[in-house]
Amino acid sequence: MRVVGGMESPGELAGLGRAALRRAVVAAASVALVAGLVFATFELLADPAALRLGRGASPEAVAALRAEMGLDRSWGTRLWGHVVGGLSFEFGVSHVRGAPAGALMARALGPTLAYALPGFVLGTVAAVLGGLAAARRRAIDRPLAALSTLLLSLSSVIVVVLAQYVLAHRLGWFPALGWPLGAEAGGVARFVALPALVWAALVWAPDWRHYRAVFMHEWAAPHVDGLRARGVPERRIGRHVLRAAVGPIVARIGQRLPHVALGSVVVEQLFNIPGLGALLVAAVHTADAALVQAIAVATAAVTIGGQAVCDAIVWLVDPRVRRRDVP
């Protein structure tokens, strides 16, 4: 057994190569699957031309629009185009909005990140610290558990509506909704504060439970008893526990990354934020296949990429993972 971590053995590297290859295959399959599903939903199950023209459209008009949109080609050709476009991140032009789907998406990413990123950081820090505190002290655990269960039981719609009513309408601490049209920085911060807080609360409730379980597990580990038996002070033991919990924490953050990139449909609808979630809802309702495809493929790429980055971080930080002591 090696005591000190250092250079990786050839076996470790070969395992890493195999894992990377499997990941690449799964990633390509995922993107192709997403593209295929979007195609199946928006071009086979729903007819975008008929949806655009409405219910009273004549069959000739629909056929003409289908030809104009390129929907009269054989479905195999169109599926192939979708999959290749997805794999090369070429999403084509949104027929409904008449602009490249990639550019539309990039424009909506800013507002989403403006509230989702601060909210996510706030919620995660609060969840990790709260989980650590709750795993140590029962007096802290009880109220936090009640709060988390309450938040989990509320639909996100209710959380947003109540926060808007109490914090914005009643107390007047924040503007109720809206988004600055100009680019003034202070204006954005004013409008972003409440959505970010709500998003933090929505992230905090399930994540606190996760981190609490992780810390409970780590505090009960045998090596913690060993440290205590040797008279190591509790503060130093806390550092050891935190270090052992890095893996699960990073993994959870990796799972959460697509939520940060896509934001919350509900938050964006109710706060009137022109972000990705709102764009997605609009795109789905207008059967805008190119735009839905762009958002879906980009989110899938963030999911897969985030997972890979987080696994790499854990692999670098945690020597037990490198030696395959823990799965």
Partner: peptide
């Protein structure tokens, strides 16, 4: 397992809304 991993990468909101529109 690979197919499930691939499927899990489909953003659930997109699948939910897409199915809602299609069906």
């Amino acid at each position: 397992a690979g197919a499930t991993d691939a499927f899990a990468a489909v953003p659930p909101v997109v699948a939910l809304l897409g199915l809602g529109l299609a069906l």
